[in-house]
Amino acid sequence: MARRRPRYGVHLGLILACLVLAAPALYALQVATLTLEEAFAVPPKLFPPSTDLGNNVHSLFEGQHFGRLIGNTFTVALAVVIGKTLFSMLAGLAFVYFSFPGKWALFFIVLLTLLMPTELILVPLSGLIAELQWVKEYPQLALTMPFMASAVGVFLFRQHFSNIPREMVEAAQLDGAGPLVFLFAVLLPMSWNVIGAHAIIQFISMWHQYAWPIFLQLSPRDQLIQVGVRNSVISGTQTDFGLLMAAGVVASIPPLVFFLLLQRQFVSGFALTRDK
């Protein structure tokens, strides 16, 4: 084809699209550098960045223990990512490499939970957690345990394992490998893309947890970061937008880094892209 010259139209469109998407975030970055007075100045201070970013971030970490909130959220998200991946892989192994009575019934029971979103059962769930007495003493169990298993994870690994040629398992069995050896020595090295994709969705969805920690009525120091961001709106009489935007920026950096690092895995790991 004769289309080898640079395609300026496409570039222009892409740059415009990127700018439109970035505009709200760029504006937030700018506001994050403003003091309380500057944030309410007319006309709005759009450029250059002011000097208050360090101050805003500092007061978040000092006054609203953002350091602790971020640490909490990170621990919780990581625990769920690791636990869920492990349990889902074990379940996938059982569903793909074993035949046992009740397999289809159990699979249907897992399938049915797709219809039961945690978002709608927060009231009885928080009652259950209260019964377990986790809120005061073990807030991290309260925040993680309800998310340790899901149909999505089981499906992802089940589908991935069933696409792996059966010669693999036959060869492993000839070598005398048991199911767990097979899982860790053969399946695991072939599953990193799926694990990466699964880890991203789980990490980000845990990082975004907002309603559940509110329902738990945790003590402020045990809260998650999204609640911290929300609370920085109502900390004063007048919303300090500089502080608020700084909170938003700080809270967004870890998932952004995690996502950008694993972006490639995310696309290639999804069964949707391979089921041809």
């Binding site: 349990f87 059982a94 074993f98 029971i109 897992v110 945690t118 009885p124 998310f147 340790m148 199911p179």
Partner: peptide, 16 residues
Amino acid sequence: LLSPTMLFLALFLYYP
């Protein structure tokens, strides 16, 4: 192998 998944689903999804 299925028991952790089943346990968590039963306790934290089905029961509530």
